[in-house]
Design a protein around this nucleic acid. Structure first.
Length: 225
DNA sequence: CCCTGATTCGC
DNA sequence: GCGAATCAGG
């Protein structure tokens, strides 16, 4: 397999969509994850959230020792590292509300079995600061199921190559399938998804008893495999 | 062990 | 330029 422009483009898109090298490799097909990583670097793609980042060498040490230069023009307010990363299968059992013991003394919640705190209604998701959002249910492990199709049968739909920072990355369908595409709406600023899909992705953790239907599953539901 | 990305180095 | 082998953190 060679790195055609299209494959490179796909690589770029997937890379900065936060997909892992393994996923990209599988999607592209015919390449190993090493190849993907190697290519990504050769392309000059930034390795953002990399689990293995030793330590930023303070390269600036050479200059003014006495001028620490505190705050440069810090541009981006905060990129909450959005993206639909979390590759692994979403735990079917969302885990018991962990006893938030210890640690922060700020949220001294009375341990009293609170009488059903129902905070959200259908459709309305709680706006939270990116830092304090409950973990979004992971939308779609974009695993390749069939050889990547270079030309999608989809027209007018948001394909992988159409992704950018301003459109909703909520996947529809399953990767590898002919009609797989993305939502494509305008994103809810600060999020990788549009408002509607943020509502699906960011759910307040309700008490178990109140969770009627199975948690909303992105990607059109679990894939039968 | 598994995963991840980074880096090296022979090709 | 490519990517397997290797390294290293989680």
């Amino acid at each position: 397999m060679s790195w055609t422009e299209e494959r490179i483009d796909t690589l770029k898109k997937m890379w900065d969509s936060g997909l892992t090298a393994t996923q990209i490799a599988e999607e592209l097909g015919g390449v190993s994850r090493n190849a993907v990583i190697g290519k990504a670097h050769r392309l000059g793609l930034q390795s953002r959230p990399s689990p293995v980042k030793p330590n930023e060498p303070k390269a600036a040490a050479a200059a003014e020792p006495a001028a620490p230069k505190p705050a440069p023009a810090a541009p981006a307010p905060k990129a909450p590292a959005p993206v639909a990363a979390a590759p692994r299968a979403p735990a079917a059992e969302p885990a018991e509300p962990v006893a938030s013991a210890a640690a922060s003394g700020d949220d001294a919640k009375p341990a009293a079995p609170a009488p059903v705190l129902r905070s959200v209604g259908p459709g309305g998701f709680l706006r939270q600061n990116p830092g304090e959002q409950s973990a979004p249910i992971t939308p779609a492990p974009p695993r390749r199921l069939v050889p990547a199709k270079p030309s999608e049968a989809i027209a007018g739909k948001t394909s992988l190559l159409d992704l950018n920072d301003r459109i909703c990355k909520w996947p529809l369908g399953h990767p590898g399938e002919p009609d797989f595409h993305f939502c494509g709406d305008k994103v809810n600023p600060g999020f990788p998804y549009c408002v509607a899909h943020c509502g699906h992705a960011y759910q307040a953790q309700l008490p178990r008893r109140d969770r009627r239907p199975p948690p909303p599953l992105p990607f059109g539901g679990p894939r039968v495999r």
